[in-house]
Design a protein around this nucleic acid. Sequence first.
RNA 1: GCCGGGGUGGCGAAAUUGGUCAUACGCGCCUGACUUAAAAUCAGGUGUCCCUCCGGGGACGUAAGGGUUCGAGUCCCUUCCCCGGCACCA
Length: 795
Amino acid sequence: MDTYDPKTIETKWQRVWEDARAFYVDDPPPGAEPDDKFYQLEMLPYPSGNLHMGHVLNYTLGDVVTHFQRRHGKHVLRPMGWDSFGLPAENAAINEGGHPREIVERNIDNIERQMHRLGWAIDWDRVIAAHDPAYYRWTQWLFLRFLEHELAYRKEAAVNWCPHDQTVLANEQVVNGHCDRCGTAVEVRKLEQWFFRITAYADALLRDHALIDWPERTKTIQRNWIGRSEGAELLFRIDELDVDVPVFTTRPDTVFGATFFVLAPEHPLVDTMVERSPNGAELGEYVSKAMLRRVEERASAEDKTGVFTGFVATNPATDEPIPVWVADYVLMEYGTGAIMAVPGHDERDRAFAEGFELPVVPVLDEEAGTLVDSAQFSGMAVEEAKQAIVEWLGSRGRGRSAVSFRLRDWGFSRQRYWGCPIPVVYCENCGIVPVPDDQLPVLLPEVDDYRPKGKPPLASNEEWLNVPCPSCGGPGKREAETMDTFVDSAWYFLRYCDPHNDREPFSRRLVDFWGPVDQYIGGIDHATGHLLYSRFFVKVLNEQGMVGFREPFQRLFHQGWVRQGGTKMSKSKGNVTAPDELADMYGADAVRLYILFVGPADQDMDWTEEGIEGIGRFLRRLWRIVHEAADGPGGSDGDAGPLVRKAHETIAKVTDDIGRRFVFNTPIAAVMELVNELGRDPSAPGARFAAETAVSLIQPYAPHIAEELWSTLGHERLWEAPWPVADQTQLARETFELVLQVNGRVRDRVEASVGESEAELVERAKASPKVQVHLDGKEIRQTIVVPGKLVNLVV
RNA sequence: GCCGGGGUGGCGAAAUUGGUCAUACGCGCCUGACUUAAAAUCAGGUGUCCCUCCGGGGACGUAAGGGUUCGAGUCCCUUCCCCGGCACCA
């Protein structure tokens, strides 16, 4: 027996798998039924720097599922690609000093090497990269379809601007008022931007949660983010300006208590008011100050601020004039940017009314939940009144039921170089003109200076910028902004199904065979970003007949964060080791096992190398014990005995854990138990079967050593061997340990046979001397028998 | 404030439908074997407290308190703490 040398066998088997094209799949496999397929996907990595332990967890999880499903006879599509456009990659390039393309491609080579080193079962024929023209050609093509359907549009909007990264950020990229990437405080700027009309799908995105098997947590986050509120849109007339101003309210029942009216500083009417109001100067000053304050600052301000506009609006319920104010506690981003203020029943309005001595009129009896001082609606219950008042106002042309969302349209243009060019041309005569499909891709030109400086770097590239208008042939300018990288990743999982197609982004036949993704694995940090965008894209593509499903990811699992906390470890052991260095020290199998063994995969952890030695010990023990079992007299499946039974129990446990419970740490413990038992006597009856079982079950985690030991045991190609099946007759027991309790406390345990009747079991309990001590001659008031488990005597 | 998830040995964690002295598996630690020695390896031990004739016996113990139940880590109530989402959203 050779000693266990991970490096040698890992290199050896990786070559064998590659030569056998073990993990590549045809499209679709000949004779495959749709039910035979399994699409396993993990979120694709940004190719910046090195893999870290978080990646190792993510992709090893996917790998275990891949092997498990393959060995259950599924045709498993398990691809890999690179999210190589966008800020993370570009920032990495800026930091490392070089052209993004070179940096990104170097990083891709490195990461790909690390992935091979860890032995992940990937179909490398299907690799895609966001920055590859063969890919982004189709990102552009899809954008044009969105544009055709008016689901992509351009408008001026107040946007989040990161002064450090010199670019616009999507709401999803702003965390607590700071740039998600660099942490700089975000400013608000008014700019023309490209948007995807995701708000048109707000309801569908909520409704279709019912179709997918996702963690409740994630659905809740999306639900909160979409923020659906039911209410009404009511019209308040400002006579002097001859306008009806709509407000959104969830409390139309309180309209009789609306004693003033508030506009957001950004509200379009405010400009007119500044011009025409007697205190226009003060108003103008307030507005420009408010616009400079970040939303976060506005919210944290202790006192509410505002200025009276000098105008009055008519309350549509009371027909009374109420003063119109401008105040920054009203946000332009939500509802209509105007509110009816009901200080009697809204905390914020109350605070404002108190600050500025505005009238407070209660219109609800809070105790009774009924309306007061509300004309014919007085005495009505709140819910009833909501409907009745909206109907009544509706009949007067002053209101209607409405739904409002917190979700905003997705601003996806970026003033940066390293992204997918937006394929439109601006023409003085024709306006925004799409680049014709047959002229795609619009290639990202090579430039020397790609650093951001407030305007898109491509805007300085005259040679590239100036092109004839595709429509009239007159002078035109290309769009110099590029797409957010989340556009690239909103459809990549579809391209994997048909990665080499050069006539269309993917064929309907192939996406409908492979799609949707059966199991998606990735971080929960993408809950309101990538996961929402991808759902939106698939809904649009479904409506346009390009895919046959409405949801991209049928099942979703979030791995926990691997943190590198400030524990003693990092101090005493110096820097945290990179995954491939760790693989060189202990072997890829040990790294893979360890990251899944330390705890539940969906739970956050502080990374520590303490304990990986234990996995190393386990693998060496496995190696030695399997060799001993292989050399010994052995014994096969047919032999009964404790070892064979233990093997079948382990099969049942591991299969249930991975397949049904989707837990990955306890199967390793179960195999360790089996190996411990086998190690007590590797020549016991059934030892060979136990060894084969242990090797077979550990294969998804540690495929290299498993493959090597499988051949030691005289077999071939474990990667395509059927997953073992627990033999129910082996699991069945003739006897069991009967637990004897007195008053719910265990007092004794005896061997009992499964055939015994309840009365017989009770007799055995009464016969036990240990039980008798606790019965102490007392009267038995109750007897509980759980068949196959226990007898409880209550005295 | 609203919504969601948690709290188990020295440590990472098991306990799946309320039913096997709760703590599997691993780490760490302790003892022993091998060794000149150490490492590695192997064998054994390791919740707390009390009693012991050394065979063992008993009580307590899953954030705190209460409840349901023959029986609760698991179900219910109250409180505390931690993590995450939303939050001047009308």
